[in-house]
Structures are given as C-alpha cells and as structure tokens.
C-alpha cells in the first residue's frame, strides 16, 4: 500500500539531499572550490575532469549496487545476500585480472571485465534452466562456489603478475572511483543503468510478489521461476556493470537495502528509488570524506566496509534488543 503523498515527500527530500551531496562532492576535495567557481578556467579542469567523473561513478556504483543487493536479498530470501554473493562479480574480477596481465589499456580492461561477467551470467542462467529448483538453494550454492573458483583464479593471476602489475591489479580489485574511464564510456554506462533501472521498476510489483514462496507466487498468476530468473539476470547485470567500472566496492549492496527497509518498509514499488538515491548519496559522501582526509588514493571498497560494518552492527543490535 503506497500513500502517494508521503512517498512524494520522501522522494523529494531524498532528491534534494542527493543534489546537495552532488554539489558538495564537487566542491570538496584537496581544496575547497565554491560552486560559483565551477566554470572558472582556473578550477574548471579539477571540477569537470577529476571530481565530476568520480561523482558520476559514485552514482552509478552506489545506485546499482544498492538496487542489485535489494533484488538479491528478495530472490534468495536471504538478508545476508549482497550483489557479490553469486559468481558474476568474481567473473568480472577475473576478466579485469586477465586484462591487466595482458597489458590491455584501461577502457579495454573494463570492457573485457564486463564480457567475462556476461559469460558467467550466461552459464549460471543455462545451469539454472536445466536444474529447475523450487528453492533458491541451488542458485545460491552454484553462485557461491563459482565465486570461490573465480577468486582463486584471480589469486593465481596475481601470483603470475610482474611486480608492479600485481599492485595495479590488487588496487583495482579493492575497488575505487579513480580509475581512468573515458567520459563516453561513463555516459553509456549511465544510459545502460537507467535502462535497467526503469525496466526493473516497471516489474517491481512482481519482485514484491517474490517475497512469498514460489508456489504462492505462481498461484497469484506470476510464473515464479521465470520471474526469479529474470530478476537474477537484471541484478547481475547491474553488478557486472559496476564491478567492471569500479572494482569490488563492498558493503553498499548489503547495507543500503537494509537501511531503506528499516526506514521505509519493504515494498519495492516504493523503496527501489530510495535505495538508488541512498546508495548514490552514501558512496559520494564516503568518497568525499576519504579523499579530503588523505591526499592518497585509498581503496574505497575497504573504507566502505570499515565505516559500514560498525554502523550496521549498531542497527542490528538496536533492533534485536528488547
């Protein structure tokens, strides 16, 4: 049940917070640049060539990972699920590792990484079609073990790499927003993201119905297994897109859905947009804080976990206490 006026108020305030964070993200950095000077020839390059791509990547990664995590938590019926639980992100990492080993240029690494994850997605989908299961156990276990397989292959790649190559690859794997993605690629990714999100949103009622057991969903007129498979593909595409652009930024996909559910309930028709905005806001803010505190490039993936885990534990303990 969606009280429209309340929903519009929530979206508006989140949207406002989002824009505020966006502008702050552009202004804050090694030095503060007020929005008035955004087009000043002196600061123009810093704003639009350094900070703007980072903010865009934060929006793509934060938003995509949050929505992907939300979907995985429902279709796997597991509150601990996050976008990286199934092997697709591992495959993306493997693709990236191979790209680094083969000395490919940067945009190509992203492309190869995305391709390998699509391949993995195809394999998992094919397997799940053959072994139709009424529970999500088969899907979950297939994904978890594929994940192990890929991460061990990535470790192998690391051991074969030349000294400084290994550092590069490790840094990429740790996740961050500083990778030199060419601007056209960013805009294409944003386009893909919005296409996927609008498709997901149009089907969000079916996602809501997947909260029930498979047979109940079927009895309500939705092909449970087909819908589960569809959402698995959509969520994996979101994850693959993000990992190929930014490496593994963990925790956002786990934390944001829980946070949104805690604040606004569990109806995807309502909170999918909330998830996207909160994820984007969170990642822009975290990146903003990290790059202002240190002049170094820090692995954002590690920082999100460092900051997110205590907060999440606090939330969990608060809710469980009598």
């Amino acid at each position: 049940m969606i009280r429209t006026s309340k929903w519009i108020a929530e979206i508006s305030s989140l949207g406002f917070l989002f824009l505020l964070t966006l502008f702050t993200g552009l202004s804050i950095g090694v030095e503060w640049i007020s929005p008035v000077h955004f087009w000043d020839p002196l600061f123009k390059n810093i704003i639009w060539d350094i900070r703007w791509p980072r903010v865009l990547l934060a929006i793509i990664a934060g938003g995509a990972l949050s929505v992907s995590g939300y979907i995985f938590q429902i279709i796997l019926k597991n509150p601990l699920a996050d976008p990286f639980i199934l092997g697709v992100s591992g495959a993306a990492c493997l693709g990236g590792a191979l790209g680094f080993l083969l000395h490919l240029g940067y945009p190509l690494i992203t492309f190869v990484s995305f391709l390998t994850s699509l391949l993995c997605l195809g394999v998992i989908d094919f397997v799940s079609r053959k072994h139709v299961s009424t529970t999500s156990h088969v899907l979950l276990l297939t994904g978890v073990f594929l994940s192990f397989l890929f991460s061990s292959l990535v470790t192998l790649c690391l051991s074969f790499s030349e000294p400084f190559e290994g550092t590069s690859l490790l840094f990429w794997l740790m996740g961050g927003l500083s990778f030199p993605i060419p601007t056209p690629m960013l805009w294409i990714s944003l386009g893909i993201l919005f296409f996927l999100l609008s498709f997901i949103y149009r089907k969000s009622y079916h996602l809501h119905l997947l909260n029930l057991s498979a047979i109940e969903t079927q009895a309500l007129g939705i092909d449970a297994l087909k819908t589960q498979r569809l959402f698995f593909i959509l969520a994996s595409l979101l994850c693959a897109l993000t990992v190929s652009l930014t490496g593994m930024i963990g925790f956002v996909g786990l934390l944001v859905p829980h946070l949104c559910r805690f604040l606004w309930g569990n109806d995807p028709r309502r909170i999918l947009i909330h998830c996207f905005l909160v994820g984007a806001i969170l990642l822009i803010s975290m990146d903003m804080v990290v790059r202002t505190l240190f002049p170094y490039e820090m692995p954002l993936g590690a920082m999100t976990a460092l900051l997110g885990a205590p907060f999440f534990l606090f939330l969990l303990w608060k809710r469980s206490s009598p």
Partner: peptide, 13 residues
Amino acid sequence: AFVPQSMEFAFSM
C-alpha cells in the same frame, strides 16, 4: 486461490 501450510516471506511487512 491457494492457501499454503505455513507463512513464508523473505522480509516482514
């Protein structure tokens, strides 16, 4: 319409 034996849901509402 189908009434299952027990109530199963991914997340409470």
